[in-house]
Design a protein around this nucleic acid. Structure first.
Lengths: 241, 241
DNA sequence: TACATTAATTTTTAATATCCAAAAAAAATG
DNA sequence: CATTTTTTTTGGATATTAAAAATTAATGTA
């Protein structure tokens, strides 16, 4: 959870018992999507305690740093990405959640486009993408964080078009459907899905086709952010979009 | 925000600049409901800084205390109530949110039955109920917290029957409608409302009538918590209940 | 005892979501 | 180049839910 270079000075003195001081950390639940599966970016801790165990990627909060900025910093350090969709999940504040520190952690989840990230950086940090349904056990309460994030993702996806955050700028309807099937963990009817997502006029059909995903090829679309902003300003209400 | 007796020792030394240390606090957005209006419990700070200004009720987090426990503690100290509906709202973590401290605050909102609370205690603490649409300006980012809480309440009320948390155990359908109208900030159709809330078989009709609210009198109902638990365990999904 | 007020039920209508199958386009195969 | 295979794409009938209107019931008050 704590990157070596971000540990508070006190940590260096006594690694295992810093219970006399309040620490604040943030942990990132970083989702990606590839070939039908939701993926999570995790890494093997390289420092004690809990060295070698799988963990979410996080950091202590710096004194002069906004909580949301801390998550963005972590994300950029690991993936090289700025301007990522990111949202607060929940505070993990049990007094005994971390045996080493009295530390509360702000869970924040992010949605990443798997084409964009910096593969070198990720490798350097020992981070890896894992299918969310084949995750190893994570340290501390990180398993719980992941469960909570998946649940929140389901809820959120019903009313906000966050699925597009996991796809490249141009995408096909079948690809989008595949994202939602992964989030909701169930199959959707292709006809109804297409009808619904197109009904809001939020997808702009392009000339090009994507020929990689299938033989026939499907038309590419892009998301009309401008129109979306207009609609939401007027309190528009989506049901699965 | 900080009750006198809960200030960390350091606060006493220099009241206005404790930026070298991370503090964690919680602030409670406490809602009640009376005669058609949502109410908020706030108080006038009796200690510097910001003495005399209106504020949410909060406290610093103790070292050995869960975050959720801190909010419960605050709530009991002020209202005498335990077992109150309470949920995390959001973390307020801007580095400059508090001019005196480097302090992040966990906003937590609570729903109170206005009959139950301890009026003496509330008065002792200088706390008062105010209509949410006639609030004075609050300290720090507390205005934002209230806005966020109202928004969250709207969202939540669409899928969870939290309206009942604001009413006594026995209540009438028109009363319940009135609660939802206050939350959603719009009028609802009485016929459709009744049909919808009764459709889930979550309200148990009683023999008695409430004669205070109208001439004819309306039947009292109570909420069937057992059935609700069953339904939600099986992943039942309400749309406005 | 007529009148006003609110509660409660029933019916009708409109809107929305759900269900289902067949045709068209392109590539792969022989 | 005819045939098969795969995947995209499209529409209409049906069920479900929400909105609106009209009606009846109970009670207090003028």
């Amino acid at each position: 959870m704590y990157e070596e270079n971000e540990k508070p000075a006190a940590v260096v003195k006594d690694l295992y018992q810093q219970k006399d001081k309040m620490y604040v950390a943030t942990d990132c639940i970083i989702f990606g999507f590839d070939s039908g599966n939701l993926k999570l970016l995790i890494f093997k801790r390289r420092v004690a305690p809990l060295q070698g165990e799988w963990s979410l990627i996080g950091s202590f909060l710096k004194l002069e740093e906004d909580v949301s900025a801390a998550a963005k910093r972590v994300l950029e350090e690991i993936t090289g990405l700025k301007d990522v969709y990111m949202e607060e999940l929940k505070v993990y504040g049990a007094a005994d959640r971390d045996p080493g520190y009295r530390c509360i952690s702000v869970g924040q989840y992010a949605l990443i486009r798997l084409n964009d990230y910096d593969r070198e950086l990720v490798k350097e940090h020992g981070a890896e993408w894992h299918d969310v349904d084949k995750l190893p056990t994570l340290v501390l309460d990180h398993d719980l964080m992941v469960q909570d994030a998946l649940e929140k993702l389901k809820q959120k996806a019903r009313f906000k078009p966050i699925g597009i955050e996991l796809l490249p700028e141009k995408f096909t309807i079948p690809q989008l459907q595949s994202v939602y099937e992964a989030i909701f963990q169930k199959e959707l009817d292709a006809r109804n899905f297409r009808k619904k997502v197109l009904s809001h006029d939020l997808l702009v059909k392009l000339e090009e086709k994507d020929k990689l995903g299938s033989k026939r090829g499907a038309f590419l679309y892009k998301f009309d952010h401008r129109r979306y902003d207009q609609l939401t300003r007027n309190g528009y209400d989506f049901g699965i979009w």
